[in-house]
Design a protein around this nucleic acid. Structure first.
Length: 197
DNA sequence: TGAATGATGCGCT
DNA sequence: GCGCATCATTCAT
């Protein structure tokens, strides 16, 4: 049995134009060493939020305590709280001073599915991670995991040589401004992609 | 279709 | 300082 190579993506991977990173990160694995054990999942859907000129990007309002991670160096997490009950996981892209990030919207569960199920009662399989809120809940990600270095050992993205055959592109979901930008990227063949609204 | 639910940031005083 | 509209969602009705 040949063991596939697992390569932790370096900061240089994220320190590029966000629209280049977005399709590249599909098929890569999100790995999180949670207090309850190792969790991993294959990323199948992301959305780009880029800079001060993107009205849907939190950073369009300027640098605030909340949006600080997006202004920092690439390769960090940006986890924020929305709607009073959900968290969303973003991965910071582009060099320091250029605020941009990829919202991780959906993934296919791999390791640690029993832990994910404990966080999301009544869910299993692709339902565990098929949406940004569900993904964070199943992974147990909260503001405590904000601004973590993806070059560290707690949470990172891994290349497992898993190719995505067909990358789809569409408008972003769930926003009221900046809807014209087709900055949602997803694996056309994945069952775990979140439902369109 | 809308309720749940709370932090954020803006526009006032 | 204070109040209020907004919000990159989910689930039950």
């Amino acid at each position: 049995m040949k063991q596939p190579r697992h390569i932790k993506l370096p900061r240089a991977f994220f320190e590029r134009p966000t629209l280049e990173v977005a399709p590249d990160i599909l098929g890569k694995y999100l790995v999180y060493h949670s207090p309850e054990g190792k969790l991993s999942a294959r990323i199948v859907e992301v959305e780009a939020y880029i800079g001060r000129d993107d009205p849907a990007c939190h950073a369009s309002k300027g640098l605030t305590p909340r949006t600080r991670p997006m202004f920092g160096p690439a390769g960090f997490t940006y986890v924020y709280f929305v709607y009073g009950m959900y968290h969303c996981l973003n991965l910071v892209t582009e060099p320091e001073g250029t605020p941009a990030a990829l919202l991780v919207r959906a993934a296919e569960p791999d390791e640690g599915q029993s832990v994910m199920g404990r966080h999301s009662p009544g869910k299993d399989g692709t339902e565990l991670l098929s949406g940004p809120g569900k993904l964070c809940r199943s992974f147990g990600l909260t503001a405590d995991q904000n601004s973590l270095d993806l070059a560290g050992d707690t949470i990172y993205i891994e290349d497992r040589q898993c190719k995505v055959e067909n990358v789809g592109q569409s408008r972003r979901v769930g926003i009221r401004v900046g809807v014209d930008r087709p900055w949602r990227f997803f694996d056309v063949d994945s069952q775990a992609v979140s439902q369109a609204r």
